[in-house]
């Protein structure tokens, strides 16, 4: 019953609401600042303003999947349910930002490269990563037993993360062996500050989302455990 008491102890602190409000204010401020102050790029014109949402979304997606990897491994190591629920929360948030990254990449690619999609290594790896984590979330929704779901999704999450560099390498070779890779234009230092502030703001949003999603998972588990206990107690 120790586990039950622990799971039921779902904190609903006001501090996290405050944190969420702060995260959104920070995002709005960073975006307004970046959009208003950034000069038009020599080649891209105002189009580079898309990068202030696209690049942070891509970074945050990688960060969220890193969290999935770390907590999946930790779950396999120590077997604590909390780690599994946190990994699941990060996976869902990561997949959301991953989808956003792909769509924003297309919106950038159409005017900048003239095509909605190019088989660039980074772009393609992002898509494969998206498919891997769609599979991860599908697996979770198809397995009912919590212990089994945790073990299996920890393995799938860890394997998926291990695969990412290999996918990247393979797509890079696949591409470069056929045609010369267009190197992304080097970033002007004037934009670096805007990118950084936006990335930090996105990170705060990500932390807030993962936290809330984690709270949700804990609450659901706690409700399940109460129902189980009631069923076992017999009335």
């Amino acid at each position: 019953m120790n586990e039950t008491a622990d799971t039921m102890n779902v904190p609903r602190s006001r501090a996290w609401t405050l944190f969420g409000v702060f995260a959104f204010v920070a995002l709005i401020a960073a975006q307004v600042h970046a959009v208003l102050t950034s000069p038009a790029d020599r080649d891209m014109g105002h189009l580079q303003k898309i990068l202030y949402v696209h690049v942070p979304a891509a970074w945050i997606m990688s960060l969220a999947f890193l969290v999935v990897f770390v907590f999946s491994i930790r779950y396999m190591w120590r077997g604590q349910e909390k780690d599994d629920l946190l990994a699941a929360a990060a996976a869902e948030v990561g997949a959301t930002f991953n989808g956003l990254t792909l769509v924003l990449g297309m919106i950038w690619g159409k005017p900048a490269w003239g095509a909605w999609w190019v088989w660039d290594p980074r772009v393609t790896t992002t898509l494969v990563l998206f498919m891997i984590f769609v599979g991860y979330l599908a697996l979770r929704s198809f397995v009912d037993d919590p212990e089994r779901r945790a073990q299996w999704s920890a393995a799938v999450g860890a394997f998926g993360a291990i695969n990412v560099p290999i996918v990247y390498m393979s797509v890079r070779w696949w591409r470069t062996l056929h045609q010369i890779q267009s190197s992304p234009s080097t970033m002007d230092s004037a934009y670096v500050l805007g990118l950084r502030t936006n990335a930090i703001a996105f990170m705060l949003i990500m932390i807030y989302f993962i936290r809330r999603r984690y709270e949700l998972a804990r609450l659901r588990r706690a409700t399940e455990l109460i129902a189980d206990a009631a069923a076992l107690g017999g009335t």
Binding site: A138, L139, F142, F159, N163, I166, V171
Partner: peptide, 18 residues
């Protein structure tokens, strides 16, 4: 699992890209 026909390719194919 309940959805083995769909789930295996969904999990496996992206992993086998390399």
């Amino acid at each position: 699992t309940r959805a083995r026909e769909v789930l295996l390719p969904l999990l496996l194919f992206p992993m086998l890209v390399p």
